[in-house]
């Protein structure tokens, strides 16, 4: 077994009075690509947000370990500094700060080092080309007035620039046309290597044809109820989620 990136042990999570995750277990090895699928309302986005440290959720029980360190009590920015990244399902619009300036602040905060201006510029331009984003996006305000597809590209651009160790993609492929899925997938592909792990939360098979996951998990009723390889997806498509219900 490869070195562990993330270990989720018996995680119980509530938002207000409602319990959403109910004893969830999951281990992600270094360099692995995991897919989490499941019916609407199963807790997939909750899992993504809890992993990143959204203050709306309370951890009732269990533990999240990132590279051997318990992160239950860490704030989102501290988790980002350890190397975690969440690509949001609905990225926020932040008026008044440009994509480039934001990425600069973000990168400097994560690395705790001043940036080399030219190097940063060059890298940004490269990644934007890869994602087929026009140069002008660098000077636009972060996600403001971006279309659904542009917002998702902006998330992947941030992923590529910030180079985290673990990327959690929360429905990054939702609402994208076939061409955009391909572009986003190629961005994620560029990120993937033996030291980077990826968790993909999705409803669609489309993106998985490009990304070739190692493991597929089904999240239902706040737990991982079934795990398998890519063949599991075919079974889901054929029989639906109900056939996996315990």
């Amino acid at each position: 077994m490869s070195e562990q990136m993330l270990i989720i042990d018996n995680l119980k999570v509530s938002a207000g009075e409602t319990t959403i995750l109910n004893g969830l277990n999951l281990s992600i090895g270094m360099g692995e690509v995991h897919v989490i699928m499941g019916p609407n309302g199963a807790g997939k986005s909750t899992l993504a947000n809890v992993l990143m440290g959204h203050p709306k959720y309370n951890i009732l029980d269990g533990d999240i370990k990132f590279q051997g360190v318990s992160i239950n009590d860490l704030k989102a920015n501290e988790r980002a500094k350890l190397g975690m990244f969440l690509s949001f399902q609905y990225p926020e619009e932040i008026p008044g700060i440009t994509v480039e300036n934001f990425l600069r602040s973000s990168k400097a905060a994560i690395t705790d080092k001043p940036l080399k201006f030219m190097e940063f510029r060059k890298a940004l331009k490269e990644k934007m080309n890869l994602l087929e984003m026009k140069d002008e996006y660098a000077t636009r305000f972060l996600n403001e007035g971006f279309s659904g597809g542009e917002k998702k590209k902006s998330e992947i651009l941030q992923l590529l620039m910030l180079e985290p160790k673990l990327a959690i993609l929360d429905e990054t492929d939702s609402g994208l046309d076939v061409d955009a899925v391909k572009i986003v997938a190629s961005g994620v592909k560029q990120y993937m290597n033996s030291e980077h792990s990826v968790i993909i939360i999705t409803h669609h098979n489309n993106i998985l044809e490009y990304l070739k996951p190692d493991y597929v998990h089904i999240l239902m009723d706040g737990q991982i109820c079934h795990s398998g390889d890519i063949n599991l997806i075919k079974k889901i498509e054929k029989d639906g989620y109900d056939s996996f219900r315990a």
């Binding site: 990143m52 500094k81 990244f85 969440l86 949001f88 926020e92 905060a109 994560i110």
Partner: peptide, 15 residues
Amino acid sequence: SDDAIFYLMSRGVSE
């Protein structure tokens, strides 16, 4: 909005 703060914090900046 708390979500906007969370979004920015998830990119490494302090609250």
